[in-house]
Simulated assay, not measured.
Amino acid sequence: MTSFEHLPILSADDVERALTRDRAAAALTRALRAGLEPSADLERSVLDVAGGQLLLMPSAGASAVGLKTVTLAAGNPGRGLPRIQGAYLLFDAETLELRAIMDGIAVTNLRTPAVSVAATAPLLTRFTRPIELVVFGAGPQAVGHVDAIRAGGSVEPADVTYVVRHPDRAREQLPPRTTVVAADSPDLTVRLGRAQVVVCATSARTPLFDSAHLTDGTVVIAVGSHEPDVRELDGSLMARANVVVEDVRTALREAGDVVLAIREGHLHADGLIPMADVVRGTRTLAPDRTAVFKSVGMSWQDLVVAEEIMEQHRRGPMT
């Protein structure tokens, strides 16, 4: 029986202290190279409740079972509360004894950019000079992706531009002297044309930009949408790109950027490239062709990261 008196309960600060994004990316890479199959992951459930939605994300591995429970309450910002909240439960795989409880949003904020880095590290080696990075959004995931790309070591950002709807508001939460441009700024097309990497981490429901402004060979990371009827990228981009996804079946069910492009005739399901193939090196993508990594987030990723968090937490603060 679980002793709750001695049960580890990790706050957001505990999660952040325990594991860096580059170590989380390394853990995900090791798991895929060791044979983890994303297609075998358990499906998540989205339940409508009176206050909004309840998301349940279970996963079962060889040594642990995990469940992330996330709530979405659209009215919470008006109450001074976060729109998204959650907790992660980590169990022993054999006994199903509860081993730890973690801040679920902190796990997500750590996991998402780590997945992007693990998936795109083999693609970013195409850039031999410091890159120009354009990031749509200025929230935790946008900033987290910039930090993760810097820490990943595959490339060195020479310049980072955040693209937002309200620049003044974004500047208040970003580091001083950060370059911020408005989404409707004429300067954006120039910056997109110079960018080697573009990150989309927004709640947009329609394409963020005209992909005609991107040069061939650009790497695009899209993590903001996980519903089949919303998108951050236009169909034209999906037509000209190698499209990498975490799992083909999941992408066809949840990734609006993929689902809508297929519906429009820009993309074919049999052309989707599983992330595992790229990470394992069984599929090499031409460096002169634009690449898109479309992520919706999967439960196996949370479990891998949660186990690594606990391993590092037990070892004590990193040096």
Rank of each mutant, 00 (worst) to 15 (best):
F4E: 13
E5L: 13
H6C: 09
I9K: 08
D14G: 13
V15Q: 12
V15M: 12
E16D: 12
R17T: 10
A18W: 09
A18S: 15
L19Y: 06
L19W: 07
L19S: 04
T20H: 14
A24C: 06
A24R: 07
A25F: 10
A26Q: 14
L28I: 13
T29S: 13
A40D: 15
E43Q: 15
E43A: 15
E43V: 15
L47Q: 13
G51T: 15
G51R: 15
L54K: 01
L54P: 04
M57C: 08
A64Q: 06
G66F: 05
G66V: 05
L67G: 06
V70P: 10
L72A: 14
R79D: 14
I84C: 11
A87W: 09
Y88P: 09
D92Q: 10
R99T: 11
I105W: 10
I105D: 13
V107S: 12
L110F: 14
A118K: 11
A121K: 11
F127Y: 12
R129A: 08
P130M: 03
P130E: 03
I131E: 01
E132T: 15
V135P: 01
G137E: 07
G137A: 12
G139H: 05
A142V: 09
G144S: 11
A148S: 05
R150W: 04
R150C: 09
R150F: 03
V164Q: 08
R165A: 01
P167L: 06
D168G: 09
A170C: 05
E172I: 11
L174M: 05
P175T: 14
T179I: 15
V180Q: 05
V180A: 06
V180E: 08
D184V: 10
G193C: 07
R194H: 13
V197K: 01
V198I: 05
V199P: 00
C200S: 06
C200V: 00
L208H: 01
S211Q: 03
H213P: 06
T215W: 07
G217R: 10
I221M: 03
V223D: 02
V223M: 08
S225H: 04
R231D: 02
E232V: 02
L233I: 01
G235F: 01
S236Q: 10
M238D: 00
N242V: 03
V244Q: 01
V244T: 03
V248K: 01
V248P: 02
T250N: 12
T250G: 11
R253C: 08
V258Q: 02
L260W: 02
I273L: 11
R280N: 11
G281E: 10
T284E: 14
L285R: 03
R289W: 12
V292H: 03
G297C: 03
M298V: 07
I309T: 07
I309N: 06
G316R: 10
T319W: 15
T319K: 15
T319E: 15
